[in-house]
Amino acid sequence: MENQDQVVKETLDRIHDQVSNNPVVLYMKGTPQMPSCGFSSRAAQALVETGEKFAFVNVLADAQIFEHLPKYQDWPTFPQLYIGGELQGGCDITLELAESGELKKLMAEANAKASA
């Protein structure tokens, strides 16, 4: 049991590092170029359309992240979008932010702060 607890802790630490060290990170099924589900595809496309830089993690390629990411911020589904270290939400919220113009603004601010 202790070994499993250690795996969970290490995975959550790795997620924390990814979220902290990338101004914008999308946890998705697949990649922006080859998404593996419609929700991930739409969320990634919204990010691409901003023209802003973002990182992504293919949760299908990392079983530990796939299993434990929902525990990180108590968000049960994929994709998950983090901007400036904060969970924004999943596909629907990402698309709402994109539609309002807020997504590009949030991403630009996070990217500018990270490169300052």
Rank of each mutant, 00 (worst) to 15 (best):
Met34Asp: 11
Gln64Pro: 01
Ala98Ser: 14
Leu95Ile: 01
Pro35Asp: 07
Phe54Leu: 05
Ala63Val: 12
Thr94Cys: 06
Gly51Gln: 01
Glu96Thr: 12
Val8Asn: 09
Ser115Gly: 12
Ile83Arg: 05
Pro76His: 12
Ser20Ile: 09
Cys37Leu: 00
Arg14Tyr: 10
Leu106Ala: 08
Ala110Tyr: 01
Gly90Pro: 00
Thr11Glu: 09
Tyr82Lys: 03
Val57Ile: 12
Leu95Tyr: 04
Glu52Phe: 06
Ser36Leu: 15
Asn22Leu: 07
Tyr82Cys: 05
Leu12Pro: 03
Val7Gln: 10
Asp17Cys: 12
Gly84Tyr: 03
Gly90Ile: 04
Ala108Cys: 08
Lys53Asn: 14
Phe56Ile: 00
Asp74Glu: 14
Gln18Met: 15
Lys71Gln: 14
Tyr27Arg: 05
Cys91Ser: 02
Phe54Val: 05
Gln4Cys: 11
Thr31Met: 02
Met28Cys: 05
Arg42Leu: 13
Trp75Pro: 04
Gly90Lys: 00
Thr50Phe: 04
Met34Arg: 14
Trp75Val: 01
Ala108His: 10
Asp17His: 15
Leu106Glu: 08
Leu97Lys: 12
Glu109Cys: 07
Pro32Asp: 07
Asp62Glu: 00
Met1Tyr: 12
Phe39Pro: 03
Ile65Ala: 08
Ala43Glu: 03
Asp5Leu: 15
Glu49Lys: 15
Phe66Lys: 14
Ala116Lys: 14
